[in-house]
Design a protein around this nucleic acid. Structure first.
Length: 192
DNA sequence: CAAGAGATCATCT
DNA sequence: GATGATCTCTTGA
């Protein structure tokens, strides 16, 4: 096992967003292992970033972001969806990387008869597929037990594309920052 | 295929 | 009482 350590998570947030591309998100439930390659991320830069949940200060919902790097920040949105972030930077510097899409690589056998390809091409879809919910909020990703990230493919710089972040039109000048990263030509990038 | 609306509720004001 | 780091379904050309 090759679990990413605390050291990895102490890099600058945007650096982590880029480096997470190609790594493997792992989830263990009842002995079953779910693995997906990370193909799309977004960087959220804390208090100054109007698109970041922590821009309005600490609340019960976002307090995980104020904690140490290497923990999960899972939030509930639109009355029915969860999204999964990796907390970065020092304590009390509330930044995070949103995991937006995965390429399924090792998934438990599908019980559903029809489509056996899990849908993980979107932040809420991958949480549904990996059964990530608020119980994993503030969970330590360096333990390698229920939820963690492992080293994976090295992605060449020229295979990384960047764009504006999605769904944050309210964020003023911050909505135009190029803080979304994804692997070029990957078919599991989120739709829009 | 693209655009628009509806779902649905914890969290914050 | 309003709203959202989304998704899915319906509509219509």
């Amino acid at each position: 096992m090759n679990v990413l350590t605390k050291q990895f998570y102490t890099q600058p947030t945007t650096e982590i967003a880029k480096q997470l591309l190609g790594k493997f998100l792992c989830r263990k439930i009842n002995g079953k292992l779910y693995i997906g390659k990370i193909v799309e991320t977004e960087s959220y830069l804390g208090r100054k970033d109007l698109a970041c949940h922590s821009a309005k200060g600490m609340t019960k919902r976002n307090e995980a972001m104020f904690g140490p790097a290497g923990y999960a920040y899972v939030y509930f949105i639109y009355g029915m969806y969860h999204c999964f972030n990796v907390v970065t930077e020092k304590e009390n510097d509330p930044c995070a990387v949103l995991i937006r899409a995965l390429e399924p690589v090792g998934m438990p056998r599908c019980k559903n008869t029809k489509s056996c390809v899990p849908t993980t091409n979107g932040p809420a879809k991958l949480c549904r597929e990996f059964k990530i919910d608020k119980k994993l909020n503030s969970y330590d990703l360096t333990l390698g037990k229920k939820l963690w990230i492992e080293n994976g493919d090295t992605i060449e710089q020229n295979q990384i594309k960047r764009s504006k972040r999605i769904g944050i039109d309210y964020a003023g000048v911050w909505k135009n920052k190029l803080l979304r990263f994804y692997i070029k030509n990957n078919e599991f990038i989120s739709k829009r």
